[in-house]
Each structure stands twice: as structure tokens, then as C-alpha cells.
Amino acid sequence: MEKSLKFFEPGESGIVKHVVGEGPIKRRLFDMGVTPGVEIVMKKLAPLGDPMEISLRGYELTLRKTEAEHIVMYVEDLHYRGEGRNRRGRRTQPVSEIKEQPIIASKSGEKVINEDLYCRVGRRGHHKGHRFGRGRNKS
């Protein structure tokens, strides 16, 4: 499922699909390492609800929600059932629409070509041994 980084909750993580928008904001995000395929963990919101603190490539970055809006993320859709609608009636997207297999770049430099995207990403702590693990989500 696609989701803007703006709507992430603290502790949630995902992989950058692409960065939308034009000009300096987009360029600045790229320069700071927000490129397709990188894993971002949303760490917290500031006490007044904005901006947010995220962690990527082993460092912490803060940005306002209006800027986070430019970042489109992949997240695990727990109710994924192929194209059509899921249990909650939301539209879902077939895997084939995702052009590129994201790469998870961790600080240790290990490069994981992510064959089971929908199990790897998602809320922290959910992804390992979750009941909606591999078998169910992979179509």
C-alpha cells in the first residue's frame, strides 16, 4: 500500500517509493538521503504535533508535515488481497504495479533485495513472525 510519510505514526516504518513535487524541497530531500528504496522509521512528533523526527541511513532528520507530504512510502497492507478491495473496503494494488524492487539499505551496508516487501515493512516489531506473515500476503 502507498501512504504519504505525513500520515505515519510514531514507530511506523516504511520504504520510500518516490518523492513528488518540484524544486528545492525535493532536491533537499534527495541530498539528505531520502531516495527511493531507503527505509525510514518515523520516530516521533514534536510536542506540538509538528514537525516530525525520522530516522534514515543511520541518522536523524526532522521535517515538517508539509514536507513529509512529498514523500510517498510503501507500507505493509495487512489485508492485501490482490487488486480490488480489501476487508475494510479500501482499494488495494497488485504487486505488478510496483516498478522497482526496493532495496533496504541498512547502516551496516548489507544490501537486501526485498523479495517480500509486504512482510518486511510496516510497524516496527510487527514484521517478524506476524500472523499476517509471508505466506498470506504474498500473492
Binding site: 518516490h18 531516495t35 527511493p36 528504496g37 544490501k111
Partner: peptide, 20 residues
Amino acid sequence: GAAIADIRYKHIVSNYSIYL
């Protein structure tokens, strides 16, 4: 711009930061 930034980071991850 996106392509170049992405190529740079991918290059770093696969060629340089593996030594960390």
C-alpha cells in the same frame, strides 16, 4: 535529479558502506 541522487546513494551502499 532523482536518478542521479539515487544512483549516488545506491553506489555508496553497494561499494563503500559495505566496509562498515
